[in-house]
């Protein structure tokens, strides 16, 4: 029970916080504006652009949010007016999907490799293959019992606090 609590609780908490609904709060202007380019300065992201055209677009976004439109509806409105290039976020389909997925695939692959390594390195029998411990055993060192192990662990913990 303890074991499952120990390993499960942090993971549970992490999952709980990450699973909170992303769209629970009201849509803000910044969230929509971050997805758009400026129509008068095509190289500028709308969020950073200070020109008059950018301000018009930001006002339109604010008005549409007030009318209760969703983020997608607002983006569709601008795409219909200015074309696909007005959206500064890669589409979530085709090749562009890789930009969204690849970092998480990388994260999963990295986590699996790390997990594999940690489990392999921490394998109980592993220490017996350590040349130093084999050599120590060969020199007739007495076996360490559980109490000694605990004492060593406590001393190490104390040293770490001191250090």
């Amino acid at each position: 029970m303890n074991m499952s609590f120990r390993s499960g609780f942090p993971a549970f908490l992490a999952l709980l916080v990450l699973a909170l609904p992303v769209r629970a709060a009201a849509l803000t202007k910044t969230e929509v504006v971050n997805n758009l380019m400026c129509y008068t300065c095509p190289q500028e992201h709308l969020a950073n652009c200070q020109c008059g055209g950018a301000q018009e677009m930001k006002d339109s976004v604010q008005r549409m949010i007030g009318e209760g439109k969703t983020e997608q509806e607002i983006l569709d409105y601008f795409v219909a007016r200015y074309g696909e290039g007005i959206v500064s976020t890669p589409p979530r389909r085709g090749f562009a999907l890789t930009a969204y997925v690849a970092p998480y695939l990388g994260l999963c692959a990295g986590a699996i490799v790390a997990l594999f390594l940690v489990l392999r390195w921490a394998r109980p029998g592993r220490r017996d293959t350590d040349p130093k411990s084999v050599a120590a055993a060969g020199n007739g060192a007495p076996p360490i019992d559980a109490a000694d192990r605990e004492r060593v662990a406590q001393e190490l913990a104390r040293l770490e606090r001191e250090e």
Binding site: P10, L13, V17, E31, M37, H45, G85, S88
Partner: peptide, 27 residues
């Protein structure tokens, strides 16, 4: 290079992809 289309990548993309990773980092 791969598709011939030069897409733009704005702040919304980075916020969307990086925020969960940042939260994991905080954990």
């Amino acid at each position: 290079v791969f598709t011939g289309n030069k897409v733009t990548v704005g702040p919304a993309f980075f916020n969307m992809v990086n925020t969960p990773l940042f939260l994991l980092l905080l954990v």
